[in-house]
Simulated assay, not measured.
Amino acid sequence: MARQALKTQASRNAAILQRTHMIALGVHGFHLLLRFTFVRRSFWAYLLLSFPSLLIQFWFERVGRPTYVDGVNGKELKRAGEDLEAKGLTEWMWDVVYWSWGCIVLTTLLGDWAWWFFAVIPLYSAWLAYTTFTGARQGLMGGGGAMPAEGASSGAQSKRQQKMEKRGGQKMQYR
């Protein structure tokens, strides 16, 4: 049971990478098959706009693929790879890959004008950067959900205060 968490992550990463490669093969194969047999689509647009997803998949393969070495008891885990289900940048990179696949399928089915859907990625990235920056700025400036100062009223009553006022008992006065 030694290093069970690493073994679990290694098997999960291998399964994720296998599934990713099979989906990518299906999406790109579908596009190229229809492009070369039925309809003519812009090949340069396809290459240019599928490049980010292919680059990200290569990066995931590089950092996420577990490596094994020959040991006394057969293959032993040397490195489990980075967590491919991590939050933050990894999650954003998965979004880019999925959106790229969707744009490739839409372009295959609807035509070259569907490549304009790819413009959502920079807009989404700009929105994420803006909200992250403004949230961090509010946190640094002391805003954003800070508790009211001592003696100041937030306008909300606790359940105990509400029950007391309902019974006609002691009423709270706020200044």
Rank of each mutant, 00 (worst) to 15 (best):
V27I: 09
L6H: 12
L25K: 10
Y130T: 07
E82C: 04
V72Y: 05
S154E: 13
L34C: 10
I23T: 09
T108Q: 03
M1V: 04
K75E: 14
Q157E: 14
R175N: 14
Q57F: 00
H21L: 05
G81T: 00
M164I: 06
E150N: 10
T132P: 02
R137Y: 11
P66K: 02
G26P: 00
K87F: 08
R35N: 14
A152I: 01
K159I: 01
T37G: 05
S154F: 01
L106D: 04
A2N: 15
F51I: 00
F118S: 12
E150S: 12
R40G: 13
G64P: 01
D95Y: 08
S100I: 00
R175M: 14
S154H: 03
W127A: 14
T132L: 13
S158M: 06
R175T: 07
L128P: 01
E82K: 11
H31Q: 05
G111P: 07
S154M: 07
G111C: 10
T20I: 01
A149H: 13
D112P: 08
M22I: 02
M22G: 02
S53V: 00
G142C: 04
E165D: 12
G145V: 00
G145H: 09
L34G: 14
W59I: 00
K75A: 15
R19H: 05
A24D: 13
R167T: 07
S125E: 08
T131W: 09
G135H: 05
D70R: 13
R12M: 05
Q157M: 14
L55S: 10
T131L: 07
N73M: 07
L49H: 14
E61Q: 07
Q4C: 04
T134W: 12
A24E: 12
A156Q: 11
P148E: 06
F36T: 04
F43K: 08
R12E: 14
H21M: 04
T20M: 15
G145Q: 10
Q4G: 03
A80N: 05
F30I: 01
G169L: 06
M172S: 09
A149Q: 14
T132E: 10
F43S: 09
G88H: 01
Q4Y: 03
L77G: 04
M164Y: 03
H31M: 02
T8F: 05
N73S: 12
F117N: 06
T107N: 15
R35C: 11
A119W: 10
A86P: 02
W92H: 09
E91T: 01
K163E: 12
L89N: 05
G71Q: 10
P148M: 09
A80K: 06
A2S: 11
H21K: 06
